[in-house]
Amino acid sequence: MPSMINWMPLVWLALAQPALAGRTEDTLLAQLRQAHPATRFDRVAATPVPGLYEVWMGENVAYVGGGNVRYLLFGHLFDTRQMRDLTALSQAGVAKASASAAEGNIPGPVDLSGLPAGDAIAVVRGNGSRKLVVFTDPACGFCRQLDTTLRQLNDVTVLHFLVPFQGTQLPEAIWCDQDRGTAYAQVMAGSASPVNDAKACANPLERNLALAARLGVQATPTLFFADGSRAAGALSRDDVEARLAQASTSKTPGKSIARSGHEAAKHR
């Protein structure tokens, strides 16, 4: 009898584990939606790593662990024993399912030359030969983290489309500043909060929101490369460099960015 009693909790735990897992995922999803109301979280799914969960935002995926929804990890989960990219497999499955559910509705490659450069803040470093578009929100912590990385790149032109997912006050203040390029850089570096003393100016924020919706941008930051491909999250410098190199050899649309001299600010 004692041995049977000792085993009973383990038997109950084994039977209850799927239900407990489901409740954990539902709880995390609710916590994420409460903590980050400006981001659309679709679902949370368990991974093979105990305590680590996939967080899905449209076709974009991040990871959360330890039940702390303050921190999201963007990157790829790799199984070194089976040599498989688990994140890529999950994304492929989501894309396939989406295609089956709504054929033709998955955003394809984006032609960067067709984007309205005058509605963006342009930063040109070096010869500006490599092209990159970023949908960003100045109030987004991940966007600030990514901006620090982007300012380490050489020979790149970056168009920053401000999208007010977390409110219009900060992006409006940046856009209406006399030197919006400097204002944007200072805010993203955390060294200043611009105060626009003049009346509110005409701005492209509504157009940028419409453009983001048309391109399927559901979270910030979202990056588009010269081959029309996209990535979401605060990528590392190595990841951005790899994507830029890949885009430069691709023959798909999006080889150039239409530039507006009024918006461009050169930083060497």
Rank of each mutant, 00 (worst) to 15 (best):
W56F: 06
A102I: 02
L115Q: 05
V61S: 02
Y71V: 15
K96W: 10
R70H: 11
K96M: 12
G114P: 00
T87P: 06
L112E: 05
V61P: 01
S100W: 10
L115W: 06
D42P: 05
F74L: 07
D79P: 10
G65P: 00
V44R: 04
P48K: 06
P50V: 08
V55I: 10
R70T: 13
S113Y: 09
A45Q: 09
A97K: 07
H76W: 08
G93I: 08
S90G: 01
T47M: 10
G66I: 02
R84W: 05
Y53M: 04
I106N: 07
V61C: 04
G75L: 07
G65H: 03
A99D: 15
A97W: 02
R43L: 04
A46P: 09
R43Y: 02
T80Q: 07
A95C: 00
P50I: 10
N105A: 15
R43C: 01
P48C: 09
R81K: 14
N105E: 15
H76L: 03
A95S: 03
V94H: 13
G114E: 05
V44K: 04
Y63D: 03
I106C: 00
G51A: 08
Y71E: 06
F41E: 00
R40M: 03
L73T: 09
G104M: 15
R43E: 09
N68T: 01
A99P: 01
Y71R: 14
Q82A: 14
G66Q: 03
V110W: 06
A95W: 04
G66E: 00
A62F: 13
D42R: 11
P107V: 12
E54L: 04
A95N: 00
A45H: 02
P107R: 12
A62K: 12
R40H: 11
S98E: 14
L89R: 10
A92M: 11
T47F: 10
F41K: 01
F41G: 01
A46N: 02
A95V: 02
P109C: 11
E59P: 04
V110A: 13
A88C: 07
P109H: 09
V69N: 04
T47V: 08
L86W: 11
G65D: 00
E103C: 06
P48L: 10
V110N: 05
L86R: 05
T39Y: 06
F74P: 00
F78H: 12
G58E: 09
M83P: 00
A45Y: 01
D79S: 09
L52S: 01
L89S: 11
